[in-house]
Computed example of a mutant assay.
Amino acid sequence: MPLSQQDIKRLRRIGHHLKPVLIFGGKGLTETFVEELNLRLEDHELIKVKVNAETRDDRAAIVQALSDKGSAELIQRIGNIALLYRPAQKPNPKLSNILRYQDA
């Protein structure tokens, strides 16, 4: 189900104050990185990922691959930071950025 403009604005507002929880580096898109991405998305629902790549096109391709592999929605990409969202199966109120910052 696609997100509405209002939902995207709310998620951007929540994501503004978040720090990147994953840093994509030179080792590429390994199975371990994809597993970690899926764990972080399940825990936090809304995460920032820092992508270290040479060119803008490389960063765009990596961010697209991350959102595809993680079955996540790309909310925003500014420079080398991507904001990804995927609703959790069972949201944990202590870990979920959506539940913790729903009043933001």
Rank of each mutant, 00 (worst) to 15 (best):
E45Y: 12
L3A: 11
L3M: 04
R86C: 07
L39C: 04
G70D: 02
E35T: 11
K9V: 04
P2G: 00
P2M: 05
R12G: 03
R56D: 15
D58R: 11
K48D: 11
D43F: 12
R40E: 12
N97A: 14
L66M: 12
R77Y: 04
E73N: 07
I14A: 06
E45Q: 13
V34F: 08
R100Y: 00
G25I: 01
I14L: 07
S71F: 15
L99N: 02
E35G: 05
I23K: 10
L18K: 09
A72W: 00
R59N: 00
L66W: 14
I8R: 13
H17I: 04
S4V: 03
L29Q: 01
N80K: 04
L18F: 06
R100P: 01
R59E: 06
E73Q: 07
E54R: 14
T32A: 14
L37K: 02
G70W: 04
R40W: 13
G26Y: 06
L18G: 09
K90E: 14
L66K: 04
L37Y: 15
E45G: 04
G79Q: 03
R100V: 01
N97H: 15
K48Y: 15
Q64A: 14
R86W: 08
T55V: 01
E35W: 11
N52M: 14
D103K: 14
K69Y: 10
H16N: 13
R12P: 01
I62L: 09
V21P: 00
L83E: 05
K50T: 09
V51D: 11
N92Y: 02
G26A: 08
G15T: 00
Q5P: 01
P91N: 00
L3W: 04
R10H: 10
L84I: 12
S71M: 14
Q89C: 05
L84V: 10
Q76S: 12
I14P: 06
E31Q: 06
P91H: 00
Q76M: 08
E35Q: 09
K9H: 15
I14N: 02
